[in-house]
Write a protein that binds this DNA or RNA. Structure first.
Lengths: 199, 199
DNA sequence: CTCTTTAATGACCAACCGGTCATTAGCAGT
DNA sequence: ACTGCTAATGACCGGTTGGTCATTAAAGAG
């Protein structure tokens, strides 16, 4: 019975630290569970604060979502280079990012949340898509490719869904290198291989 | 005050009819809202029964989901034909199905629900994906294509997400015909256009 | 008509949600 | 050491959810 609880209810008073901890926990939780399944209480627990503190800092769950999940994406750090290798560079940038951030990527939080039609998530998601399309557009040279860019975005969405959200099936079983290689081929097909059969 | 309520609480007693009405309402609701946001009470209201009747008929919300949402997919009614036009036939079959069923497609129910990590939805979703991959495999001729089939599936997932779930952006603004045409090109690229640049 | 069967119902429940608020306690200024 | 400010807290609230159960009333059998 002699419970030596050294810190029964030791309060720490550090707004900025807590704020950052909450934002970090929120991003991870939203990415794992999506907006609806993520609860303020779980975010608070992960951040090591009371759930009321979370609401106090950010007002509401939705405002927290907006603050925690970065909006316009900074993904497309596609290395510059010769246009003919563009698909492989896009694939490398995408796979590199997703593999390093693992399940904590805000992209996953947006994807999961947008699927359940949460309007905030959908709006942010759209903004992100426009932004990344713009970036891809500036990187890719030809005008003819531009029409295919939405399909490139869709391919990346679907691939993300299979490999990182559902986490099962053939794409999920590949190693990162295998995945990047095949993905590069598919991206190449979407961007350049749109010619019909020639007689 | 003379309320002439002819049917104050007229009960109808027809198990099979109610069962079908519930299944139909469930499919629509799951497709619109996803597993989590869909409530048993709303399904019951749409079916015109009490919410307890829904639980009585199907035991639980999850069992209802399994019964209402068709598992292995019957999608790929890809018309047979010469292999060189396969992409266009796949695009036509896909767009035709999605446009006619509008928002009631079980595919949407699965996609929305799987995104929120619901395990039942994920399992059904995987089964569906395997099934459709198998169908595509039987339709497509060459062996070299098989490696690209998961990416075809992913492309369709992403495209579905953009046009029918988020319902915004460039893909959503296209007419069905425009969409089918561009999609055919992208499918062609994924399936056949994987060759690297030739010297 | 009467009785039995059972589909259908509405009241009810515990659990959990996001959000509010009075209270408590750490820290800076004096 | 005292005190005011306010970050942090836990108790609490109304609402909603999936699920249970005793009660009710249609439909078939005699």
């Amino acid at each position: 019975m002699t419970a030596p609880q050294a810190t029964p209810c030791k309060r720490v008073r550090n707004p900025q630290l807590h704020r950052e901890a909450i934002l970090d926990a929120a991003l991870r939780t939203f990415a794992e569970r999506g907006f609806e399944y993520a609860t303020v209480r779980e975010i608070a627990e992960r951040a090591g604060v009371a759930h009321s503190s979370v609401l106090r800092h950010f007002g509401s769950k939705e405002q927290l979502f907006r603050m925690a999940v970065p909006g316009p994406w900074d993904v497309a750090e596609v290395a510059p280079g010769e246009p003919c290798m563009l698909p492989e560079r896009i694939a490398a940038a995408y796979v590199g990012r997703m593999e390093t951030l693992a399940g904590n990527d805000p992209y996953l939080a947006l994807l999961r949340s947008a699927a359940t039609d949460d309007c905030a998530a959908t709006q942010i998601y759209l903004a992100m898509q426009d932004k990344s399309l713009e970036i891809y557009r500036s990187v890719s040279g030809g005008d003819a490719i531009h029409n295919q860019l939405p399909f490139l975005a869709s391919l990346l969405i679907g691939v993300t869904f299979s490999r990182y959200v559902v986490r099962a099936g053939l794409l999920a079983e590949m190693t990162a290198d295998q995945f990047a290689e095949h993905l590069g081929g598919s991206i190449r097909g979407v961007l350049f291989g749109t010619q019909a059969v020639q007689p």
